[in-house]
């Protein structure tokens, strides 16, 4: 059990977002260019396609103690590689359910679609994830050591 002091200090979740180069990363760039202000909790790793992100990386990130992991890709039908995000979607459905099955709150793993034109959406996704995960509290996985 965490002691009371720990509970009282402000919890600032650390969230990882894998962004595909063509849509989500560009959307994040646009959010920056548009100066949309958002919480500082999310860190982006650029991949060429959301389909490059294997479940192992998501599982590893959560097990390492990160409070949330997001995969952000092109909207269905818009994948630069025509079908990568559809494969991502299938995997994410299974992974999300599996994580929930072992007691990881579903909010801690998200797949979201952000186009290159959706700077505002990127910012909204960051805010929403930060809010939800802050409300959940620290990732319980780290208690398992």
């Amino acid at each position: 059990m965490p002691d009371i002091k720990e509970v009282q200090t402000e919890f600032k979740p650390k969230i990882l977002a894998f962004c595909c180069n063509w849509c989500a990363y560009a959307g994040a760039d646009l959010a920056g260019v548009s100066r949309f202000q958002m919480p500082t909790n999310v860190r982006v790793i650029r991949v060429m396609c959301s389909g490059r992100v294997p479940p192992e990386l998501v599982i590893r990130a959560l097990a390492n103690g990160l409070d949330g992991v997001m995969i952000l890709g092109c909207h269905p039908g818009d994948c630069h590689y025509s079908e990568g995000n559809y494969l991502t979607r299938r995997r994410a459905h299974v992974l999300k359910r599996l994580l929930s099955y072992i007691g990881i709150e579903p909010e801690r793993f998200q797949l979201r679609w952000v186009s290159a034109a959706e700077g505002a959406k990127f910012s909204a996704v960051v805010k929403e994830a930060t809010d939800k995960i802050t409300a959940l509290g620290p990732n319980r996985w780290v208690d398992k050591k």
Binding site: P55, I59, R60, A63, L99, I102, V142, K144, K145
Partner: peptide, 20 residues
Amino acid sequence: WLSKANDISENLVYHLIRAF
């Protein structure tokens, strides 16, 4: 992908990845 440490956290990583 997996630390040698035999703790629940790593056990969970192992079994989840294997299930996948």
